[in-house]
Design a protein around this nucleic acid. Sequence first.
DNA 1: CTACTTGCAAAATTTTTGCAACTGA
DNA 2: TCAGTTGCAAAAATTTTGCAAGTAG
Lengths: 130, 130
Amino acid sequence: MDSKIKYRKSRQRDTIQEMLMNRKDHPTADTLFFELKKEFPDLSLGNVYRNLNILVEQGVIQRLDLGSTFNRFDGNAAPHSHFICTICNSVSDVDLKFDLDVSIVSNESLAGHISGYKLDFFGVCEKCRR
Amino acid sequence: MDSKIKYRKSRQRDTIQEMLMNRKDHPTADTLFFELKKEFPDLSLGNVYRNLNILVEQGVIQRLDLGSTFNRFDGNAAPHSHFICTICNSVSDVDLKFDLDVSIVSNESLAGHISGYKLDFFGVCEKCRR
DNA sequence: CTACTTGCAAAATTTTTGCAACTGA
DNA sequence: TCAGTTGCAAAAATTTTGCAAGTAG
């Protein structure tokens, strides 16, 4: 976590990254832990967190904070929006037709200094609608 | 928290609500706790949480989840955007000139079923810019 | 070799809960 | 009186950390 650390390659961390990139749900640390446990029987949850934090720091994945009491992780580090189902809490990616125009903000003192935004959508997913 | 409970009036809860409505920073439970402690010397943090949850349930305040490890609370229950300073982590309200047009979402299967969105902005606040 | 990585267990942080005493309507 | 409220302490849930042994380069 110390930014001057030169990270080594680790099969565990590589697998976490790969797993995250290959699944499009946005799993929690715990979900990943149980999935990884199959391949690394004596894996510990603490190291899943440690590796996730390193991957976030390296900018290859991102941590999602979507209003739950726990974090989810996304193999796609590029900023993008999500759709959260208010019934089953599943999270899916959302593509925007256009980039948001930040000029919709009317606070003059802030408007010029906005460096980013986070836009997420809520509703009932297709599965829960049936 | 049981939705069939008929809440009584409580000076503690009223004060929390009032305090929240009168300040425009968006305090954490802990911050409120220390502030309230002046007026209620043997207040417990647990009850601050209990009362905040009741107020959220009643829809008079809202819980903010802005990416930190803790929640903040907002005396304004109406959905609105926030600006989070990436230096000092302060949170301020943001007014939008227009309501966001949800048709910017291109996922056809979701587009018609979006019931809400959450839009927050990031940058460096005026104080930290100096 | 030297630093990074891992497993394990303990700890830290934030929030919730059980219980008995108290209080408002 | 009765159901909601409070203080206190313990517990729950999620995430972080210390340490000693292991390992990549």
